[in-house]
Design a protein around this nucleic acid. Structure first.
Lengths: 245, 245
DNA sequence: AGGTCACAATGACATAGGTCATTTTCGCAT
DNA sequence: ATGCGAAAATGACCTATGTCATTGTGACCT
């Protein structure tokens, strides 16, 4: 996973962080991809770089939505809880993803760092002001929201109508595609998240996820490599499984 | 369900529809709520009123996304199909809802009329041009997208983690809230859609939906009225069920 | 190298919800 | 009012996935 490189270290005074965006490795993936030098400077002026360790909370459902984030490195899980503790992971965010489009005064879900995460944090009001100045940015956000909505639809199909096997394979393929998008390889897929995270994302239990991985291994649809990476030897075959033919 | 009233009938020539928006009964619910007289006139110039009968297709998944719609009356179901015919209904739209935020060149899902539906149709490119002129409208769209995203998250929790009973009760409460929003009553809830539609929306089978309704009736959590309307006698109690306490 | 600890895998068994078949109800046309 | 056809409800049975308990494994520390 790409990690942000600063041309100089973050400054102590939060108000005067230097413009690190020019060197941001995920800029083109993120909302900032549409901005020119001048605009970037304005973004940088309201941005703040932060780092989170595995399992650190980033936002809490219900909290007043004061900040928005650009993920610059690592993996973040978004989730919602039912009162009795049942958890639904609604998504995983990685480099270039924007956290906080879907907000209405309060955060609609919680977010935690899965592994080591770096983010670019914005004060909500300041970003909103900037939006009025930068129509490009607003269009970009609308585009992102649109993409997220499409993804959400797909996830509904998965949760409502796919079998365990179809769910797991769909998940692996989605990770593979995302890895490629971010400039990586398509095939050994990295799984920074636990079986429990995957289960809660797919509407399954850890046991079923485990068993499904095992069964896919047995049928040679996947191969487990060192470090828990998953090799996908035949995309065609996997697509066929994932789409439920 | 509120039905649009025109101050004059739609004109034959599609290019020169008269401005019916001023009298549109769902204006304040819809994206048009933020527009003043002048802006409304511009919207009206690119809008076209259409009517659909039950089961008519409105858009088809995969088709080039040439039109956007404002629902002015009736109920629309959005859905996606798996190749073997399994269907996931991803949402129901009613008066004031906007159809087509989530689109990327092609429609991501299909839409059909559940009952008699009236819509206000826009040519995509024209609406996009208008967006550049009317920043209000763009903000409004972003807000709508944000709301839809929040709803999508809730639906993921429902699909992934709720029991059949919780799903059905959540659905009834959501319908009730929506009915209120649109200016109706909270309690006898109208169900224009079939059990099959509900099942495909909740990730269940028609049989399970039926049985769950029966069981809720037996426990007096709901009451069926004439015309298939569902009375909700105790919101508190139902909320408790829906949220899975 | 060995020990520890958390996570993953596996096994035996239980069950919510699915499947298939049948009956009932209800809206609508005559 | 009566009959018809589609939708809904119900029943008997089944199975994919969940539950609970146990074992295996691999990363990290000393």
């Amino acid at each position: 996973m790409a990690v942000m490189k600063f041309n100089r270290p973050p400054v102590a005074n939060p108000g005067s962080v230097m413009s690190p965006c020019a060197a941001c490795s995920v800029r083109d993936l993120s909302i900032c991809g549409v901005l020119d030098e001048t605009d970037l400077r304005k973004m940088a002026a309201i941005a703040h770089n932060l780092r989170f360790s595995p399992h650190d909370p980033i936002i809490d459902e219900g909290e007043s939505a004061n900040f928005l984030f650009n993920i610059t490195g690592g993996t973040v899980r978004l989730y919602k809880l039912l009162p009795d503790g049942r958890r639904q992971v609604t998504g995983f965010l990685t480099s270039g993803d924007f956290l906080g489009i879907a907000l209405n005064e309060n955060y609609a879900y919680s977010a935690e760092a899965v592994d080591d995460v770096t983010v670019c944090r914005f004060v909500r009001g300041k970003l909103e002001n900037l939006l009025d100045e930068l129509p490009h940015l607003e269009k970009r956000l609308l585009g992102l929201a649109s993409n997220e909505l499409v993804q959400a639809q797909d996830q509904m199909v998965l949760l409502g109508r796919k079998t365990a096997k179809e769910k797991v394979v769909s998940f692996l393929l989605a990770l593979s595609r995302r890895q490629e998008e971010v400039g990586g390889v398509a095939t050994p897929v990295m799984l920074p998240m636990s079986r429990a995270d995957i289960a809660d994302y797919l509407g399954l239990t850890t046991e079923t996820v485990s068993r499904t991985f095992s069964s896919l291994k047995r049928s040679q649809a996947i191969r487990i490599e060192e470090g828990g990476k998953v090799a996908l030897p035949d995309f065609e075959a996997l697509e066929t499984i994932a789409e439920g033919y």
